[in-house]
Design a protein around this nucleic acid. Structure first.
Length: 234
DNA sequence: AATAGAGCCAACCGCCACTAA
DNA sequence: GTTAGTGGCGGTTGGCTCTAT
């Protein structure tokens, strides 16, 4: 199989001259046939090691700076959808490598995601206590049609979709429901996030306005992600 | 100032899928 | 159909840096 190499291969951190030599060789031969490339370069490195070094650090157009807030949201969104498919996630973040994203997730986001999940879990319990009340009095015409699931338990409405179609102002500007949701969101949003409302939502909750970054993807997923932990904990 | 513990990240390892012979 | 070679992916590790005591 591959990599049953002689024992004199170098390991450990790469030196500048090794980087230069690898860059030159890849420039001449292209990003393929890594074992042959490693031999031809004269580097005492395995093809696998050369490929990794190239892909993660030497490739043109790689970003080496800090992960931005927008990128962070994207990583969280996509990780939620796809799990640990780091290479797939990396394809959606130009200039970032799977290794970089994986490390960032483990060192920065995992705890964040876990604590957010815990936060929502606690909030959901509180909300169930607060709002397990008759729902037919709610102004929304969808309210109270069949009170069989947790989404209704919280909102008195039958689904995310129907709630979206309702006018949330029907709950009243000072409803306990609204203020509770406001507390929930402000306590669960990450530091640096801001909630931006559309003109017609009047800043009531729940609305489907943008949370956090201004990217198109976040606009699509941001709020749904904010709510989904509640749905999923049913 | 010394030291222990935590955090971070580059690099390695093992497995798997794909391809060619 | 089988086997060997290769590349890609995700998990893990080792060592360096930072922070708290």
């Amino acid at each position: 199989m591959a990599n049953h190499e002689p024992g004199n291969l170098r390991r450990g951190p790469w030196h500048d001259e090794e980087d230069e030599r690898l860059t030159t060789t890849v420039g001449a031969l292209g990003e393929k046939h890594w074992d042959a490339l490693a031999k031809q370069s004269g580097l005492r490195r395995s093809g696998k090691s050369c490929r990794l070094r190239w892909m993660n650090y030497l490739r043109p157009n790689l970003k080496h700076g800090e992960i931005t807030l927008e990128e962070e949201h994207t990583i969280l969104d996509l990780h939620k959808q796809w799990g640990n498919k780091w290479s797939r996630i990396a394809k959606r973040l130009p200039g970032r490598t799977d290794n970089e994203i994986k490390n960032y997730w483990r060192s920065h986001l995992k705890k964040k995601a876990d604590s957010q999940q815990e936060c929502f879990k606690g909030m959901k319990e509180d909300l169930n206590q607060d709002f397990l009340t008759p729902k037919r009095d709610r102004s929304c015409e969808h309210a109270g049609e069949s009170s069989t699931n947790d989404k209704e338990g919280i909102f008195g409405i039958s689904s995310l979709e129907t709630s979206e179609s309702c006018n949330m102002n029907a709950f009243g500007s000072s409803s306990p429901y609204e203020s509770r949701m406001s507390d929930l969101i402000s306590s669960c949003c990450w530091q640096g996030d801001e909630i931006k409302h559309h003109e017609d939502c009047m800043g009531t909750f729940p609305c489907f306005c943008e949370v956090g970054s201004s990217s198109e993807e976040s606009q699509t997923h941001g709020v749904l992600d904010l709510w989904s932990p509640i749905w999923e904990m049913g």
